[in-house]
Write a protein that binds this DNA or RNA. Structure first.
Lengths: 186, 186
DNA sequence: GTCTATACAGTGATAGAC
DNA sequence: GTCTATCACTGTATAGAC
């Protein structure tokens, strides 16, 4: 992370390898490409999200499911690493290549969740819509946690995300005279 | 596209340049990187989607908006290019680098739509949720068009997507005894 | 202003020695 | 499992031809 503060693309893979006490070759044996060094361990929260979907109780609503996913991921939110994740995210956000990698990781996660959903046999819902909502809530919770202060209650943070999602979905079904519409003022 | 049938990554940028009657240098003057040669012109449908959002009438619902977006993009569906788009998509889908680029294009489009939505000042809805739904409908319509047969009515195809979205959203708000839940059978 | 040739740094693959 | 060495390729930079 110190090396990347001078810029991701101006830091050669060989430099990273040297800093870690290994050769360039060994570096590429451990990481499929240079970008992966910033995404190792990313899968843990995604795995927990998939597990939460797989274990949802029969009769649960989608909101129950989103809640379960959020509970599962905040369990592994390590306050001691929060600042480090923030630095990592700043590096990723400022580099197009890394943003691409970030997106494909999320997409892969979404596909895993889709599979888990189909295995559960959800009834009367488009899997794509459900997965999109889960992904939104997942991402919102994670990014808010990163940006929050250390003393912010993580449980309340997840509850906020869930409540906002519920409000937004409810608004979608209301007519033009209520919320969920576009006002006169452009 | 003929060159890519032997594989995208086994096709050197120099080969593409030669086939197009130009030097490698000139190729990279026209395309920021090798991948971009498969994404030129991608922005047109995205631009139309953004324009449709910007022009939505006051009092419209989100479903009206999605409908407007779908109408805007199917206007540029050229039946003569449908097969070519299918070949292109097959190449993209089979290559991780290209899938990454595809995702970041969609993300960029979503950000443009988010900006357009905020300018309209939508009331009582989370922009993220609305944008996700628009993106889903957009993508579903495009990919179904590619996979459909030539004589398939494009308008009906867009109507299908809209109807399914409406059904899915409605199901989200119904309780555990109705649709929108997970059945006993796992 | 558009094109090209050339040189170059860096990535990532591969083969082989310890 | 780690290392060195070598290699094709990408993408940049430069300098120049038309």
């Amino acid at each position: 992370m110190e090396l990347f503060e001078r810029g991701y693309d101006t830091t050669a893979a060989a430099q990273i390898a040297e800093r870690a006490g290994m050769s360039k070759s060994t570096f590429f044996r451990h990481f499929a490409d240079k970008r992966e060094v910033l995404f190792v361990g990313t899968g843990e929260m995604a795995d927990r999200a998939v597990a939460a979907v797989a274990e949802v109780a029969p009769g649960s609503t989608v909101f129950d499911l989103v809640d379960a996913v959020l509970q599962a991921i905040i369990e592994v939110f390590d306050p001691g690493k929060r600042t480090w994740y923030g630095r990592r995210q700043a590096v990723v956000d400022h580099n197009p290549e890394l943003r691409e990698r970030d997106l494909i990781k999320r997409q892969t996660q979404n596909e895993a969740i889709t599979t888990a959903l189909r295995d559960k046999g959800l009834d009367g819902m488009s899997p794509d819509v459900v997965v999109a909502l889960i992904g939104l809530a997942f991402h919102a919770t994670y990014s808010r946690w990163i940006e929050a202060s250390d003393d912010r209650d993580v449980t309340a943070l997840a509850a906020d995300v869930l409540a906002e999602l519920r409000t937004a979905i409810t608004a979608l079904n209301q007519g033009p005279s209520a919320n969920g519409t576009f006002p006169e003022q452009g």
